[in-house]
Write a protein that binds this DNA or RNA. Structure first.
Lengths: 177, 177, 177, 177
DNA sequence: TTTT
DNA sequence: TTTT
């Protein structure tokens, strides 16, 4: 713990609307991808090339709820966090590894598009209502999280038990995003 | 390229002596893993837990040669770079993805262990000799790099052609490190 | 040089249009300030407080020309660089110190306001013309830089000789921005 | 607060033993300087030059106590934090400005020198004893902090009232370190 | 696979 | 004022 640092800072565009779900213990989790671009000059041709790198981001609890309410496809975001590689089982039973940025600081850097304002959506600041989601793919209440495929999601028990993404798990074994 | 940042900074211990090889075009590449530690308090038990995260690092050219000469197993290092996910084929023919830190700044933060000084090893600063390797696992001269399994290594053509690690490639389909 | 890092990353709003000038050796230098905001909760009152921090940024050469063409008052910018404290003489003859971020990466994060497009301004990409400035406060051609008050600007000789800001120097002894 | 980042990461050597004191409200504050080195090639002579940059660091509360117990002159440290410029009055009554790194993460990167181990010193982990200091220059109990020169220290009220460094204050008006 |  |  001393003599140790694990820090990532990326700025880029969100690829798709984040997917938000809940662990069995009721913790919110948000997953999304961010594209960063890099321009460089090809050593053979001397041509300018643009290269896009995709990053998987995972956010927990308050950060996840912020993501659910304010971050959508196409937004320019700042993500600060740490790298974490988790292990999961492919359909063929073999181990796979996915590296993600576990975010501890997420900010939108551009104006929120119209129709995405928290007031219209019902944000998590609303009083008396608890947290309310309204984009379809986020609508997974904790009680629906019945726990099949437990411990197949790659998230360590200590991070928060329960299957994070039952439905994605099966579709994730070949494509990381 | 504008409105974009892709930055990683880690400090940790090197797990094994780096593996250094050459692309067919003669570029040096070094690969090694770095462990970062994180202490946190378990939410259920309230116990202090130590968690180790492993990071794959790849260094090119000058950085690779620095690594070959100065970085060995157990050293405390600073690595600054960018995230890059590359695609490769498992033995079953399926796509796999590995995320690495492509380093642009590597520094040793502790004293070099005895028997690892560049003077004893023949460093790359030596005059008249060019670059000389001497640890067994690094001893892969460019001319031996005959190019089978080309484009199976996951490194983009533009980064520098040629198979980076023919021998590791086959052993890599299940374990990322 | 080994075991050393000096890194700053800020994101914030530019306070005033950058001031661009030239050293006697013809190097472009840009100076501007960036505001970062921080929200925190007051420990006494429990109230939310917003606090603004101002940062001085200096950019050299290509970075300075980029700043001259694309960065103006009010823009949201990313600045990556290193900290540098320089010494200068106040009017009372006493030493003063100013800490700046010497930028090696500057990016605009929002859309450029209309009337600030490089095409209308004549950007530094223009062909056949070399570098051309057009905002009044930037218009200080190298040949006007006649060198009085040399070595009073606080910039080290090695960074590039010559007085960076003869005119500001005298006004700077009490206020850093 | 959104669209804002203020982040500094430095690695370097501590110049002198930190100075630790207490605000009138009993909060610990530690101050020390860190040297970072930078090697570069002089553009005129082509010679390699080493340049040292000094950074002022301030740490509060738990971080300050960690500093008091573990960080001494000559140690290699990692400091992560934010930039803050504070205003203070010189003896001539004029405003001066000092930029510091307000640390939120401090780590020692080398082995602690003998005679500096916390066990010999009595660390702040000791039970039943509260925090105990033992290096002379740190020995400034809160009750001695009688508050003269209040609001002359440049620390904002909200950070924690009271004179941070009564004794240094008078010596600080011309030299920042 | 490192280290404290 | 540090250190290699």
């Amino acid at each position: 713990m001393a003599g140790s640092m694990n820090k990532v800072i990326i700025i880029g565009r969100v690829g798709q609307d984040p997917k938000v779900s809940y662990t069995t213990s009721g913790q919110a989790v948000a997953n999304f991808s961010v594209a960063t671009d890099e321009g460089y000059r090809d050593r053979q041709t001397g041509q300018k090339v643009e290269r896009t790198e995709w990053h998987r981001v995972v956010a927990w609890r308050q950060q996840a709820e912020f993501v659910a309410n304010y971050i959508g496809k196409g937004r320019l975001v700042l993500v600060e966090g740490k790298l974490q590689t988790r292990k999961w089982q492919g359909q063929d039973g073999q181990d796979r590894y996915t590296t993600e940025i576990v975010a501890d600081n997420i900010q939108g850097l551009d104006r929120m598009p119209d129709g995405q304002q928290p007031a219209q959506q019902g944000g998590y600041q609303q009083q008396g209502g608890g947290y309310q989601q309204n984009r379809p793919q986020q609508n997974r209440p904790p009680q629906n999280n019945n726990g099949y495929q437990q411990n197949n999601n790659g998230y360590p028990e200590d991070e928060d038990l329960g299957p994070a993404f039952p439905s994605e798990a099966s579709g994730m074994d070949d494509v990381p995003f």
